[in-house]
């Protein structure tokens, strides 16, 4: 497993160290592309493949502002007020904490456009979410820009700026899927609770609320070649356990290849723009392939 993954990492690293003189000559937008790609790839330490069983496949839509706006207000009070099922409160709050954590990481990353040296100077007080593993982020004031009641145009710009960060968007996209799954579970659990009150619940409804919208299997392929598999407890009681495991196995074999294909296409395009020619990039790819073999 080390070969292809490590090669891609090396390929990504080669894009990042553009010499300062070259960087200055590049147009600003291209420089932004290189920076954002580098920012994402420098954090890639593993390939993570998750397999989830859902009640309903919702389609492809991902609108960052909408997702951010929906996760931002989550708090204990909000969940109570909106009538979310109590058994899912912790998972919703975890999702909101993830959002806060990702933003704090951007604020303390010297390579990011959001870097704020005042935060890192006094990290224990300004961003305890990064230093204290026992802290509950819900007890802390948020650092995230408010998309619902912004204090002014500057705050709206801050949100827009945040939602243009590739690094942040990658996490937000995953959060969007997890929230959609939680919402689906929430709807079912609430329906089930009503049906239970009427004493008219069906076995099927009960099974659906237990078994759907859960990540059943997760495999993490680390950069050093270590592979970690995790399975949800519910998998062992699932009536179609073997099918889920087979789907996960199938996706594992193809996922790495697909991710590598998409990513190396982008890396090659950007690299050849910097080099002024796809010919050189193709030549380099050939050299890489021959050295790999």
């Amino acid at each position: 497993m080390t070969t292809a993954f490590e090669n891609l990492q090396n390929q990504a690293k080669r894009v990042k160290p553009v010499s300062p003189s070259t960087t200055r000559k590049l147009p600003e937008q291209l420089n932004d592309f290189v920076r954002s790609l580098g920012g994402v790839l420098v954090d890639v330490t593993a390939l993570e493949v998750n397999t989830m069983v859902v009640e309903y496949i919702s389609g492809n839509k991902f609108i960052p502002w909408e997702v951010y706006r929906d996760i931002y207000p989550i708090s204990r009070v909000y969940l109570e007020q909106q009538g979310y099922h109590p058994t899912l409160h912790k998972q919703y709050l975890d999702l909101r904490s993830q959002l806060e954590l990702q933003y704090s990481l951007l604020l303390t990353d010297p390579g990011s456009a959001f870097y704020d040296s005042s935060v890192i100077d006094n990290i224990r007080e300004t961003s305890p979410i990064l230093t204290d593993p026992t802290i509950d982020s819900m007890d802390l004031p948020t650092r995230l820009p408010d998309p619902i009641n912004p204090t002014g145009a500057e705050e709206v710009t801050k949100v827009r700026h945040l939602l243009s960060s590739s690094n942040f968007l990658c996490h937000l996209r995953k959060m969007s899927e997890l929230k959609a799954a939680l919402d689906s579970r929430n709807r079912r659990l609430l329906r089930h609770a009503v049906a239970f009150a009427d004493d008219s619940q069906s076995d099927e409804a009960l099974q659906n609320s237990i078994f759907n919208d859960i990540i059943y299997a997760q495999t993490v392929i680390q950069l050093d070649g270590d592979i970690v598999n995790r399975y949800a407890e519910e998998l062992f009681d699932h009536p179609h356990r073997d099918a889920i495991l087979a789907i996960h196995r199938d996706s594992l074999t193809t996922s790495e290849n697909q991710w590598r294909g998409l990513l190396s296409f982008i890396i090659d395009i950007i690299q050849s723009t910097i080099d002024r020619g796809m010919f050189r990039a193709a030549k380099r790819r050939k050299m890489r392939e021959s050295s790999r073999n």
């Binding site: 790609l37 994402v40 790839l41 954090d43 890639v44 593993a46 390939l47 993570e48 493949v49 998750n50 397999t51 989830m52 069983v53 859902v54 009640e55 309903y56 496949i57 919702s58 389609g59 492809n60 590739s166 690094n167 990658c170 996490h171 996209r173 995953k174 899927e177 659906n208 078994f211 759907n212 009536p239 179609h240 099918a243 889920i244 789907i247 996960h248 996706s251 996922s255 697909q258 991710w259 998409l262 990513l263 982008i266």
Partner: peptide
Amino acid sequence: GQGIFRTLISLDGDVLNQVCSDILPHS
């Protein structure tokens, strides 16, 4: 007409596969 599989590949190396529960009994 029914969504069966969805694969979401993220630039940072996260891959999420979703499978609709209705298909699981039909191996």
